[in-house]
């Protein structure tokens, strides 16, 4: 099993590598298109600001490669947001894998949302063995509104899509690599997915 973690200079990618190690999987941090193309699984992480992350992605040419991938791909946090059509943050055009618009929280609550929140309406094998209302760790100011590709929801003043699935592409807004044992199980389910 070859797992590629896309490293385009955005944030803490080591944590994902370490989480996979704890599960017994080796992975490779890479920005090399060939390595990504030939991997069995691809993880697309990302933290920080959308437009600068998208620019970094363009600099590596991965922006054109990612939408064409055929193996299971998991976008995490900003990675998931960049897989959508457009992000309100920095008015950024995304990869267009999910036809969704990522918008800013407009609630009476604090922004960014930082901490552990529940996920529910779980509708995918990605959540095999995971109970409704499990807690996941999240840090974000922008979110995907309720969506037809949603496979999990969360609530922060408004109910929103916290995970998406379409064909071979999965996206999660929360950080499975930072969400304890349950988060690790989601990573394991992704590695073991058969699509």
């Amino acid at each position: 099993m070859k797992i590629a973690i896309i490293d385009y200079g955005a944030g803490n990618v080591k944590s994902i590598e370490f989480a996979l190690q704890r599960l017994g999987f080796e992975s490779e941090l890479t920005s090399d298109s060939e390595v990504v193309k030939n991997a069995d699984r691809v993880i697309f992480p990302g933290v920080g600001e959308a437009s600068s992350a998208m620019n970094m992605l363009k600099n590596t040419g991965l922006d054109t490669l990612i939408p064409t991938l055929k193996q299971p791909v998991l976008g995490i946090c900003l990675g998931m947001q960049l897989m959508c059509d457009v992000c309100e943050e920095g008015n950024t055009k995304g990869l267009g894998i999910f036809d969704a618009k990522v918008v800013k929280f407009d609630t009476q609550f604090k922004v960014p949302q930082v901490g552990w929140n529940t996920i529910f309406n779980l509708k995918s094998d990605l959540f095999k063995g995971i109970g409704e209302n499990s807690y996941m760790y999240l840090v974000h100011s922008y979110y995907v509104p309720k969506h037809k590709s949603s496979i999990a929801a969360s609530d922060y003043g408004i109910e929103y899509s916290v995970a998406l699935h379409k064909n071979n592409f999965f996206g999660v807004q929360f950080h499975p690599e930072k969400s304890g044992k349950i988060g690790e199980l989601i990573l394991k389910n992704f590695i073991e997915t058969s699509i």
Binding site: R22, H175, K178
Partner: peptide
């Protein structure tokens, strides 16, 4: 820090 990151699964 690297050692901590290897072993714990919370932020």
């Amino acid at each position: 820090v690297e050692d901590i990151a290897k072993h714990i699964n919370i932020p």
